[in-house]
């Protein structure tokens, strides 16, 4: 019962106990931080976790140094079109993508360090158009939805080790605009998306088909929901959703994240767990990794939830030097990247 699982949290008890500041990373040349992410970087047979930061017109790569310090390795200048977001590619080394555009994404570009070619840094477009959603997939693939005046195209592009795009695969498009994608964990050929009219769509994305298998409805209380994570268990499809435009209700408070179980055979669904915003807080830009969710609130604080408990487990108040603007999980949920607009990024152990 979702209503019963909503328990107002005691903000004073949350604070920072479960988040420990590990290190701070400051890009002095950055005027406005747009996004932050982590990625694996292989050099001389050694794999390390690097940090990627983006401001409007450049993307920087940071390597770990001794004593929790970070050193900038390289900055890619991306030109006139502003960076909107970093698009990490899970389980891929030395390659990251960025989405560029003004109000919406107009181009996706890969950025690469070729250590075999005298540490040369490269960049090149992967896709251009009116792109509504993009997600990096396993095995160096990228899925995106884009719109022309007549139709929507949903496409998976494979990238080679040198970043160049290989054959693309067109997926069967639903009529509704796809706003977000999520891989179904443990099922290499299953992909889901959320649509502008509260739908969940399921595709089979093996090499032969891009078949649209099922359309299911999320519910009218949660317009334009965003899928963050999906996994299949006991014949049900569990989806972690955030609800940026949901209205506050007395029974459920202000919904931030929900775990919903869908039966793909019948398209019926049931709410499993419900995570609310702390009382008095609004607005959120969220990120999910494993069973952890984080979001920046309009107050300038960052809230962290345990999605299995449905509880807010940590609240980072606005830093004395400025409000938080970005919250992203590293490739593991044990590390939270918290960013400020001036380019400062703090790494917290969770």
């Amino acid at each position: 019962d979702e209503a019963e699982q909503f328990t107002p949290v005691l903000l004073d008890s949350l604070r920072e106990e479960s988040l420990q500041l590990v290190s701070k990373l400051k890009d002095c040349s950055s005027s406005c931080a747009v996004d932050v992410s982590t990625m694996w970087w292989d050099t001389a047979g050694c794999r390390e976790l690097y940090v990627v930061t983006a401001c409007e017109n450049s993307v920087s790569l940071w390597k770990p140094l001794a004593s929790d310090q970070w050193g900038k390795v390289y900055t890619w200048q991306v030109g006139e079109i502003p960076v909107i977001q970093i698009v990490p590619l899970p389980d891929t080394s030395n390659l990251v993508c960025v989405a560029l555009g003004d109000l919406e994404i107009g181009e996706i570009r890969w950025l690469l360090l070729c250590s075999s070619e005298n540490d040369s840094f490269k960049q090149s477009p992967v896709k251009t158009g009116n792109i509504k959603a993009v997600l990096g997939l396993k095995d160096r693939r990228l899925v995106s939805s884009s719109r022309t005046t007549q139709e929507q195209q949903v496409e998976i592009v494979s990238l080679s080790e040198t970043g160049r795009s290989k054959d693309g695969q067109t997926l069967m498009s639903p009529e509704e605009t796809v706003l977000a994608f999520a891989e179904v964990e443990g099922m290499r050929d299953a992909l889901i998306g959320t649509t502008a009219v509260n739908g969940i769509v399921v595709w089979s994305v093996n090499l032969k088909t891009g078949q649209l298998l099922k359309k299911m409805h999320i519910g009218y209380s949660y317009p334009a929901s965003i899928c963050h994570r999906a996994y299949s268990d006991s014949g049900l499809l569990f989806v972690v959703l955030s609800h940026p435009h949901a209205k506050e209700s007395e029974s459920c408070g202000n919904p931030a994240f929900r775990v919903v179980a869908f039966n793909p055979k019948t398209a019926r669904s049931a709410g499993v767990m419900f995570s609310s915003l702390p009382p008095g807080h609004t607005g959120r830009q969220g990120d999910v990794k494993d069973a952890s969710a984080a979001a920046v609130l309009t107050s300038g604080a960052i809230a962290v939830w345990d999605l299995l408990l449905g509880q807010c487990t940590a609240l980072l108040p606005p830093d004395p030097e400025g409000s938080w603007a970005l919250a992203r999980w590293a490739t593991t949920s044990a590390c939270l990247l918290a960013g400020q607009r001036d380019g400062t990024v703090c790494l917290y152990r969770y």
Partner: peptide
């Protein structure tokens, strides 16, 4: 969630949907 809420559940839902006619 109970099966009565969600209807009959299949552990092989993905394979079964893949072999059915596409939408």
């Amino acid at each position: 969630c109970s099966e009565s809420d969600l209807g009959p559940i299949s552990l092989n839902w993905f394979e079964e949907l893949t072999t059915e006619a596409p939408l």
